[in-house]
Design a protein around this nucleic acid. Structure first.
Lengths: 130, 130
DNA sequence: AACTAATTGCAACATTGTTGCGATATTATT
DNA sequence: AATAATATCGCAACAATGTTGCAATTAGTT
């Protein structure tokens, strides 16, 4: 089995996630640590973090890919089926950990995963719009 | 105002959509008509079709962008807030026109649009899996 | 300190999408 | 049917994002 290592680059990425309340793109992360490591390294670190369930990957309505830290509740198995909100104005993506959609599927489909993304105006931009 | 024209390329693209029950990517469409027109032309036609509400754009869980013909019900204004199903095996995306999620949002968010994509096994692949 | 394997940097490549501009083709007009 | 106006196209060039191979480096272990 593989034993993950704590490298400078990985620590730097995790620190960024720790500080951010919103989801970040590869580019946004890389910009903050371009003197620490290579562009490719950031891609690889993100891949590993997603694989290790430390970070989850979110695809925006536009197709923009972002990443956010997972919030593990207790020791339970972590499921990513919560909703995400994508603000049309500031372009920030926020996890709505408590919003879970209910829906009725046709027969004969086996649902393994869901992606529920809402877009519009976040509380911040809604206020500044008045 | 602009008056849309019926060009050979546009007709070819529309014909492909007519025949397909699933959502198609730019690449999939272009492969079928690469002797008819340029790659860029396909991009532009898709853009226009989306703008004219003839086709809608779907972003997969992976970030794959696909397009599918809109089904207009009566003369009503067309809304794209239906669900999409993305099969993990055959990678096909199907519109679930009748699946609409219900959910409760926190206050202070203004929701303009939603994207609800489910992934798993489609009826076809579910059967062939037994 | 030496060893092993995870991780990195670099260079090169692939895919997807965009833009500018002169040429072409469609539609409406005469 | 010929003409005019302009929507659309082809091409070339570029940009952004992501991937891969491989040799060099480095973290964690013995």
């Amino acid at each position: 089995m593989k034993t993950a290592r704590n490298t400078t680059a990985k620590t730097a990425v995790l620190e960024i996630f720790g500080k951010s309340k919103i989801a970040l793109s590869h580019t946004e992360i890389y910009k903050q640590i371009e003197d620490v490591c290579d562009r490719v390294t950031v891609y690889r670190i993100l891949d590993r973090l997603v694989n290790d369930d430390i970070v989850h990957k979110i695809v925006d309505l536009d197709g923009t890919v972002k990443y956010a830290k997972c919030h593990h509740h207790a020791q339970r198995v972590h499921i990513h089926n919560h909703a995400h909100f994508s603000c049309e104005k500031c372009l920030e993506i926020t996890c709505l950990e408590n919003v879970k959609p209910s829906y009725i599927m046709p027969h004969n489909y086996k649902v393994n995963n869901i992606n529920f993304t809402l877009s519009g105006l976040c509380p911040n931009c809604l206020n500044s719009n008045i």
